[in-house]
């Protein structure tokens, strides 16, 4: 294994299409629920402990070798919003293309065959980490960091928020991210031993509801 592969996978410039998604920040900004760095931090913290935790556990479980088809179905059941399911699959398909180019292997080819419309992005992220020789904790950190860095970057564009303030938010969330990563990896281990029902199912009601509102807008800056 090479530790540097983690930097390649976690790099915002890795061509996986994540920059086109705001992680719900665009809808929250429009609704007036994110108006500055304080709200952004609260939004990201909520996302970290809900969608982030679930994504981190899915990614870590994929590294541990849990069947990707079961993980994908578990992700579906944890994503009631059809708009979010669609976004997750599109992101998963794009990420799988990038991962197959970066770390070509039979397992990723097989997954591409199973999911012509794409698998949920956190599952693919875990498989990419596995192909790159990374561990479950690496994959969980990647998924969790993405769950907060996406909205932070998007809010810089949406609100013209000072990028220093947005980065400050991410830095302040780092200790909590460590704790959630540990919990995600623990849950992934239980899922590997006992099945995917052991995965966390934490949810943020407004993330789901507002994703549907966002999908109905005629014009938007971000895809989700």
């Amino acid at each position: 294994m090479t530790r540097a592969a983690l930097l390649v996978l976690a790099d915002g410039r890795f061509p996986a299409g994540g920059h086109a998604h705001s992680g719900g920040a665009e809808a929250a900004v429009k609704a007036g629920r994110i108006t500055g760095a304080g709200d952004l931090e609260d939004f990201c913290r909520g996302r970290l402990h809900t969608a982030g935790l679930v994504a981190g556990a899915l990614a870590a479980a994929a590294v541990l070798g849990v069947d990707p088809r079961e993980l994908d179905a578990a992700a579906d059941a944890r994503t009631p919003s059809p708009a979010l399911r669609l976004a997750a699959r599109r992101l998963g398909r794009q990420l799988l293309r990038a991962a197959r180019a970066s770390w070509p292997c039979a397992e990723l080819d097989r997954v591409a065959g199973w999911f012509p419309k794409g698998a949920h992005q956190p599952v693919v992220l875990g498989l990419a980490a596995r192909a790159a020789g990374l561990g479950p904790s690496d994959a969980a950190y990647c998924a969790l960091y993405e769950s907060v860095s996406g909205p932070a970057t998007a809010t810089v564009r949406l609100l013209s928020l000072d990028p220093f303030d947005a980065t400050g938010v991410l830095a302040r969330l780092a200790p909590e991210l460590d704790a959630v990563a540990e919990s995600a990896v623990g849950a992934a281990g239980r899922a590997a031993a006992r099945g995917v029902a052991a995965l966390p199912a934490a949810s943020g009601p407004l993330l789901e509801i507002m994703a549907e509102a966002h999908a109905s807008w005629p014009a938007r800056l971000f895809a989700s």
């Binding site: 719900g24 929250a28 609704a31 629920r33 994110i34 709200d39 609260d42 939004f43 990201c44 913290r45 909520g46 996302r47 970290l48 402990h49 809900t50 969608a51 935790l53 909590e176 934490a202 943020g204 009601p205 407004l206 993330l207």
Partner: peptide, 12 residues
């Protein structure tokens, strides 16, 4: 509850 439960991602 875990952080952010009353924030803009959850109950607001």
């Amino acid at each position: 509850a875990p952080g952010g439960w009353d924030g803009p991602a959850a109950l607001a």
